[in-house]
């Protein structure tokens, strides 16, 4: 299933946060959206999955989702959004409950999702007992359980420490190689975008516009830090976002 955004424009009050953003995400690719804080990239992601209504423009999907898909557009949130009074297993089960299916299948989906993120032995644990990395893996398991056609990931690693971030990045790459899911991955972290994205969309600061789209035509396992292609991609991206980052850093926050 492809995801197509046409001329998305959005504003809060009088402030334009997205200005005429158009993007097509092809089935099976990971599109990283890179931009400084306040460029409207998270807003764009919320618009893509129907969690926010844009002032202008529309979002379409094209093609049928896979047969097992229960929720074609599925989010992974930065703050995990795990329900504190439900165990890991119950959290993963929640989005399956309202779908008519045999209890055994529901259980099987939960078990397989937990197994894919290596959380099987923590099924009965409450979120507060988990580390940040395990929380995000639980939330990824919840997303996997509905067999999404397109994953919408909103800075999924930003709330984690550097080492955990590396481990989870490896997990994401492994999962992608297993299932070749389609994903939009929003981040302000250049390294993450280069590591994961097949295309990196660079957004400018307010109003958010597409500055450039950088293709990284390299399999994930050939993206070593020292690889010349990776270094080049980083340099191109850094030159695109450097000035924006400096301006962003000097600005007094009014958007929160």
């Amino acid at each position: 299933m492809d995801l197509i955004a046409r001329s998305i424009t959005h504003s809060y009050g009088g402030m334009v946060v997205l200005d005429d953003v158009s993007l097509t995400v092809r089935s099976g690719e990971i599109v990283a959206i890179l931009g400084p804080s306040g460029c409207g990239k998270s807003t764009f992601l919320r618009i893509l999955g129907g969690l926010e209504k844009p002032r202008g423009g529309r979002v379409f999907t094209q093609g049928e989702p896979p047969a097992k898909t229960l929720n074609p557009l599925t989010y992974v949130f930065q703050d995990f959004a795990l329900i504190p009074w439900m165990s890991v297993e119950q959290n993963v089960m929640l989005p399956l409950e309202h779908h008519p299916m045999a209890d055994a299948e529901r259980r099987a989906r939960v078990a397989s999702a937990l197994q894919r993120v290596n959380l099987t032995e923590f099924a009965a644990v409450y979120p507060r007992q988990l580390s940040g990395g395990m929380k995000q893996r639980a939330s990824i398991a919840r997303a996997l359980a509905v067999e999404p056609a397109i994953l919408l990931m909103d800075e999924p690693l930003s709330a984690l420490d550097a080492q955990t971030r590396d481990l989870l990045m490896d997990d994401l790459i492994r999962l992608w190689n297993e299932t070749r899911f389609t994903a939009v991955y929003v981040t302000h972290n250049l390294a993450e975008a280069v590591r994961l994205g097949h295309r990196v969309v660079v957004l400018s600061r307010r109003p958010g516009r597409i500055r450039d789209i950088v293709e990284i035509d390299l399999p994930h396992d050939q993206r070593a830090e020292s690889s010349p292609d990776v270094i080049r991609a980083r340099e191109i991206l850094w030159s695109l976002i450097r000035e924006e980052a400096i301006t962003a850093d000097r600005e007094i926050s009014d958007a929160g």
Partner: peptide, 13 residues
Amino acid sequence: RGLIRMAQSFGVP
């Protein structure tokens, strides 16, 4: 509200 939006994003009734 984040939890509610999460549930809505999964189509929970």
